[in-house]
């Protein structure tokens, strides 16, 4: 049997969940043996294989049109989708933006902040993604496995990936759902 293909990406998060994945330290070598690491932020393939991957992992909630695109593409191309970390699971800290309008948040950042000069304006180039309400991943695409934590502990991430790599569905119970 060929190794299961795994792809990952980050949306509206902080990269901390991917850092926690690296916090498995030398066990990363074990994961590299178990799975075929495809497009991720630390590899150079740009998107998950068009022919599909076995496991897709997404960190971060969805807060703009680009994140929506990435989430839909990952969902289409992976068999099992993992929401990694509190941001992906329920929106996390970035979802605090929902207490304000997007316009208010943009104005503060690009016009009103004390250090912004008098020519400050809200960036609006067509190259840029358009901001939306911040949503958990499951509000945008169906999710198969939720791994909470900010970030989830490296041991939990290792358990989830190695179970999936061996074709099993990880059961997250007890301490694995708690973090400190």
């Amino acid at each position: 049997m060929s190794k299961p293909k795994v792809a990952s990406d980050w949306l509206a998060g902080c990269a901390g969940c991917h850092m926690s994945l690296l916090d498995m330290d030398e066990r990363i070598v074990k994961i590299a043996e178990l799975v075929d690491l495809r497009a991720t932020p630390i590899t150079d393939l740009k998107e998950p294989d068009a022919s599909g991957v076995d496991v897709g992992v997404l960190e971060g909630g969805v807060n703009n049109t680009l994140n929506e695109e990435v989430a839909h593409r990952m969902r289409k191309r992976c068999k099992v989708l993992v929401a990694l970390g509190d941001c992906a699971v329920f929106g996390g800290v970035p979802a605090m933006r929902n207490f304000f309008t997007i316009e208010e948040a943009l104005r503060r950042a690009y016009v009103e902040t004390e250090s912004t000069d008098e020519n400050g304006r809200i960036p609006d180039d067509p190259e840029l993604a358009v901001q939306t309400r911040v949503r958990a991943l499951h509000e945008v695409v169906p999710v198969d496995i939720h791994v909470p934590g900010c970030p989830p502990n490296a041991d939990v991430i290792f358990y989830v990936l190695s179970e999936l790599a061996q074709g099993r569905k990880p059961e997250l119970t007890g301490n694995m759902l708690h973090w400190h």
């Binding site: 509206a12 807060n63 703009n64 680009l66 994140n67 970035p94 605090m96 933006r97 207490f99 304000f100 997007i102 208010e104 948040a105 943009l106 503060r108 950042a109 902040t113 180039d125 190259e127 840029l128 993604a129 901001q131």
Partner: peptide, 12 residues
């Protein structure tokens, strides 16, 4: 191009 905005300065 940097392509995302989260708005900490406002929501804090």
């Amino acid at each position: 191009h940097v392509n995302e905005f989260r708005g900490f300065e406002k929501f804090c």
